[in-house]
Computed example of a mutant assay.
Amino acid sequence: MKSLGVNWFIEGTLDFEYKKYVLLDYLQEINRHFDKSKLYPNLSDLVFHYNNLISFKQNKVTLQNAFPQRLTEADIAAVKLTYKKIVEDDNSMQEIEQIITYAMTKMNPAIQTGHEIYNFVESRLNIDPVGIMPLLPYDGYFSLHNGKDKINLLYEYHFTIFEDKNDKYRGINIQLIDTYEHSLINTPEAIKLNLIRKNKHLPNPAVYYVHSDITFPLEQTLLPVAKRCLVKYISDAA
């Protein structure tokens, strides 16, 4: 996919018409993917750039650190440089503000479209626990059935926890370990019994059957949404 640099709106030539062309070219490809219900990495990339513009607009320190500014003083003792701030009525600043405002106006509808697709995929997704669940279901397996596909995908998952300065967040690492044909014999319960026999390190694993009634692009849509929904489902139930 086409991508934008982190500071695309301030790097290189500060020309509104040129930046407008770069942005619209990027959004055109994003929307082509959305038209095919392909969400990722397009949606997360788009949200990142939108949030970056908001942060930029709200926090002028970010702008002052990122923009190539005019050096005024060298603090040798601290081995650092200090810069003269670009004032609000500076021509470059005005051009940047115009670019940011236009970009946010154009990005917002695309983000809304992406969220609508996400919500639709989530509404067609069901998560069913299989058998008796362990007290700590943060390691286990899930079987993924994608609409009318005949093949189910079996993943092993492990929860991860990461922190920022305000909160803890849960993520999930997954690994594809097997595939099997969807049939009356290969029930979720039968798959769980087979997992217990094969993998002694998890005597009573958490196993989930994740299935959609509509076929979606696997890597770009169903799997990323399924992972996020599974994290939420397990976190809410634990």
Results as ranks from 00 to 15, higher is better:
P68H: 04
K38G: 02
T72N: 14
Q69T: 15
E73Y: 15
N173T: 05
E163F: 09
Q94H: 05
P134I: 10
Y102E: 01
I30R: 00
N166W: 08
I117V: 03
S123A: 08
S37A: 10
L43R: 02
N146I: 02
M133Q: 15
Y138C: 06
T82W: 08
V61G: 09
H33R: 05
F162P: 07
N126Q: 12
T62V: 13
I100Q: 01
L27Q: 01
I111N: 03
A77Q: 14
D164K: 00
S123L: 01
F120W: 10
K80Q: 15
Q69N: 14
D128G: 07
L153N: 07
K57A: 05
Y155W: 01
N59A: 01
N108E: 13
N52C: 05
T101A: 14
A103F: 01
L27P: 00
D90S: 03
I111Y: 07
M93K: 07
R124Q: 15
V79W: 13
R170V: 10
R70Q: 15
D75C: 12
F159Q: 01
H158G: 08
V87R: 08
N108T: 11
I111S: 06
G140R: 02
N108C: 09
F56T: 02
N65E: 13
G140Y: 06
G114S: 01
H49N: 00
R70K: 15
I117H: 02
F159A: 03
I117R: 06
F159N: 00
Q28H: 04
I99V: 04
N126H: 10
I132G: 04
L46K: 03
K85H: 14
M93C: 03
A66W: 12
G147R: 08
Y141M: 07
V47F: 10
N59V: 04
S123D: 07
I54P: 04
M104L: 04
T101V: 12
K150W: 11
N152I: 11
K80C: 15
N51T: 10
F120I: 11
N152E: 11
P129F: 14
K60C: 05
F67Y: 09
T113S: 06
N31S: 04
